[in-house]
């Protein structure tokens, strides 16, 4: 490498670095701002055969629609075996004569969403809640009652992301 080439390349790269001093910070300040790409629920329309795009986080189970047909269990049993059918004798839903509902072990779930695609009764969805960390592994086991709680509305507002060629990608505060 010639010395002129060296100096020229050095100046170009230093100049590029200096320009970046005037850019906005790219970091998302978690958990003050949470930059979910989408806040929609992942759902599946069995009549059309297509899903509705959304974030594949923890499930939401509609117990008034679940018939206990076990199709979600069958879909999952070779993938991650996270879904178990749990008998709940105390429930009294007319459509669920067998009184069994799915429970999900999030220590195993891979969030592929094929259980939602398997449900023919609009009973299973996936919500944008993905922060599922627990101190105890057993707490990651969600019973049908826990799954049927509607997902908490995200309390922190979604950061407004700006994509700017000059100033970079940053959150508008």
């Amino acid at each position: 490498m010639k010395i002129t080439e060296f100096v020229k390349g050095f100046m170009i790269s230093v100049n590029t670095g200096i320009q970046h001093l005037f850019r906005k910070r790219m970091t998302t300040m978690y958990p003050e701002t949470q930059n979910y790409p989408t806040l929609d629920m992942y759902a599946y329309d069995p009549r059309k055969g297509i899903a509705v795009s959304g974030w594949r986080g923890r499930h939401y189970l509609d117990m008034t629609k679940c018939t206990g047909c076990q199709l979600c269990y069958i879909a999952c049993e070779n993938i991650s075996e996270a879904i178990e059918m749990v008998p709940l004798p105390e429930t009294n839903y007319p459509q669920n004569k067998k009184k069994i509902f799915p429970a999900v072990d999030y220590g195993r779930c891979v969030f592929c969403g094929f259980c939602v695609d398997a449900c023919p009764f609009y009973a299973l969805y996936m919500t944008p809640v993905a922060e599922l960390s627990e101190y105890d592994r057993n707490d990651l086991y969600y019973s049908p009652y826990e799954l049927s709680k509607p997902p908490a509305v995200n309390p922190t507002p979604r950061a407004k992301e700006k994509i700017d060629i000059k100033r970079g990608v940053y959150d508008e505060r």
Binding site: Q70, Y73, E84, M85, V86, P87, I100, A103, Y141, S143, Y145
Partner: peptide, 9 residues
């Protein structure tokens, strides 16, 4: 085949 459920919930 339904697996036996051992969890207590």
């Amino acid at each position: 085949v339904i697996e036996k459920v051992e969890h207590e919930h």
